[in-house]
């Protein structure tokens, strides 16, 4: 695919270090009645550009909360998060939204398509937000939908699509702005095994083709093993952080 037709105007601070995500001394605490729950407890890691990383852990280990913090959807109690070299803490909500629009893609467990938009319109949203020319955006969205096998369903509404089809649309949406990093929260959680595998392949495929960093939250160890790196969470802390044998540079060759 072509390089994007647009360049980000602001936030040009791009460090030479190719860490796409940096998390330092991250804490997230909640008040529950009179107790304080520490859901994310002093987490530190950096993720290099281009690799795929799975965050695994049992239910209640804090994975989804961590994901929210990494994506800038949530503010930490203390600690820092940097996305693509941009520190998130000092940013306002709207500034964070901009960052997401430019650098981040999302895939959710519950697909999260806008029910009142067609498949095509759903995919177009991230680029339309930037004010790109509609004709080009539409063409690009059409291409993407075709590449996920839904070229003939572009005018259907989410309620007219099956779960797997909805997730494919969601993936197309997630990739249309050629994000630096893709966050996926249990992307196959609501799908049957066969469809789930198809979706997984799609995600890894696009990850390699575009060089997007993949951060995958899942409790499915099989899926986790397909990633370059696995970060295991337990009780809000990193209990294990390991690379599978392959280096980032050869990850692109792996799928061939």
């Amino acid at each position: 695919m072509n390089k994007p037709l647009f360049m980000s105007v602001s936030f040009k601070i791009k460090k030479t270090v190719s860490n796409i995500l940096e998390v330092q001394q991250l804490y997230r605490k909640f008040k529950s009645g009179s107790k304080i729950l520490t859901v994310v407890d002093d987490i530190n890691f950096s993720i290099q550009e281009g690799i795929s990383c799975a965050i695994v852990g049992p239910s209640g280990s804090g994975k989804t909360t961590l994901l929210g913090l990494c994506a800038g959807l949530d503010r930490p109690t203390s600690g820092t998060v940097s996305l693509n070299g941009i520190p998130l803490n000092p940013l306002s909500e709207d500034e964070r939204a901009k960052v997401r629009n430019e650098h981040v893609g999302f895939v959710f467990q519950t697909f999260q398509l806008v029910p009142t938009l067609t498949a095509l319109e759903n995919v177009m949203v991230p680029l339309e937000l930037r004010g790109d020319a509609t004709k080009e955006v539409r063409e690009r969205a059409q291409e993407l939908l075709e590449s996920v096998g839904l070229g003939d369903r572009t005018h259907h509404y989410p309620t007219q699509l099956s779960g797997g089809e909805q997730q494919r649309v969601a993936i197309a949406r997630a990739f249309i702005n050629q994000p630096k990093i893709l966050f996926a929260d249990e992307p196959t959680g609501n799908l049957d095994t066969e469809t789930g595998e198809y979706i997984e392949d799609l995600i890894f495929d696009l990850n390699e083709k575009q060089g997007t960093t993949l951060v995958l939250v899942t409790h499915d160890l099989e899926l986790a093993k397909k990633c370059n790196r696995i970060i295991k969470l337990k009780n809000g802390q990193v209990s294990e952080d390991s690379f599978t044998e392959l280096e980032p540079e050869t990850a692109a060759e792996k799928s061939l």
Partner: peptide, 16 residues
């Protein structure tokens, strides 16, 4: 609420 949350994820500002 859900729709708005998702839109915010993909970059819609709160005022928008």
């Amino acid at each position: 609420i859900n729709t708005v949350a998702v839109l915010r994820c993909v970059g819609v500002s709160s005022n928008q």
